[in-house]
Amino acid sequence: MTLEEKVFAAFKDAFDLEDGIDRASLVYREFPEWNSIGHMTLVAALETQFDAMLEANEILAMSSFDKAVEIMAKYDEH
């Protein structure tokens, strides 16, 4: 899996998404399920997917799908 696919797998898991969804629509507080509770679900899914523990500043900075990919790059071993 590429980095982007791994991040998307976590998003799918957290928000129950279809494969074809427009990834640009995945924005914190704009995408309906991505509220503050959904945010913690997403972080947990990303941590499981990447077997990592995120820092508080990374959690706060994760405002869109693209931003999540950028942040998770650091934890991508493959």
Partner: peptide
């Protein structure tokens, strides 16, 4: 608690 909560939730 903040640092451990998600790890514990697993």
């Amino acid at each position: 608690i903040q640092a451990a909560a998600r790890l514990m939730a697993r």
